[in-house]
């Protein structure tokens, strides 16, 4: 059989490498839908806020803990940074990966617990889902994000388990990272819009 210039027999198609692993592509599509979902929520909040006749935040409502949440925001951002360095260590094959991934998980867990404590305090002050526009939007936006943090936290725990067993590969680690970077990246926007 005659060969082409690359030495392949004619009629046999060259094997094509995918530009992206399936897991990464799937996660990117999912995160794109999540971006639109959060964009819709933020847009509704911006319009609702601008429509408030008595100013924003509405008078007579509890004050949101701006400074404490700024600290919590820093913890979540640090978690994203730790995950970035965990990935670098994973690529280089250094033993730091486990420690950095654990740090990222711990900071994510701290964020969830801190936010839980914040919610308990706010509910105690009378800010509930039905107490007014502020409470409704606050629990909808921040609660939806918190749900995503919890899911991301579970994914990172699963990743850590696989890393500990020695069967973690890049194809499983990248989608987990994409989701966590999304969760970390969307939070400062929510903080800026809801708290400041």
């Amino acid at each position: 059989m005659p060969d082409d210039t690359l030495g392949r027999p004619f009629g046999v198609p060259a094997r094509r490498e995918p530009v992206l692993p399936n897991g990464v592509l799937g996660m990117l599509i999912f995160v794109a839908t999540e971006v639109m979902f959060f964009s819709g929520l933020i847009s509704a909040f911006v319009i609702g806020k601008s429509n408030a006749l008595g100013g924003w935040p509405p008078p007579g409502q509890p004050r949101l803990p701006v400074e404490e949440t700024a600290f919590n925001t820093a913890a979540l951002l640090a978690s994203g940074v730790a995950l970035y360095f965990a990935n670098r260590a994973f690529k280089n094959g250094t033993p730091n990966t486990k420690r950095l991934l654990l740090l990222s998980i711990a900071l994510g867990g701290f964020f969830v617990l801190f936010q839980g404590a914040e919610w308990v305090a706010l509910i105690g002050e009378g800010l509930t889902l039905t107490s007014g526009q502020l409470g409704g939007f606050f629990y909808l936006l921040v609660g939806t994000h918190a749900l995503h943090v919890v899911v991301g936290f579970i994914i990172l725990l699963y990743t850590y388990r696989r890393l500990s067993r020695g069967d973690l590969d890049g194809f499983a680690f990248w989608p987990a990272q994409i989701f966590w970077y999304f969760v970390v990246g969307v939070w400062p926007i929510l903080y800026w819009q809801v708290y400041l």
Binding site: V35, M36, V46, K49, S50, N51
Partner: peptide, 21 residues
């Protein structure tokens, strides 16, 4: 809406939601 701020927010979010995807 008679509120100028509300109309502006509507325009801003429309532009935002159009450009993001």
């Amino acid at each position: 809406s008679p509120l100028e701020e509300n109309r502006q927010a509507f325009v801003d979010t429309t532009v935002f939601l159009t450009l993001v995807p």
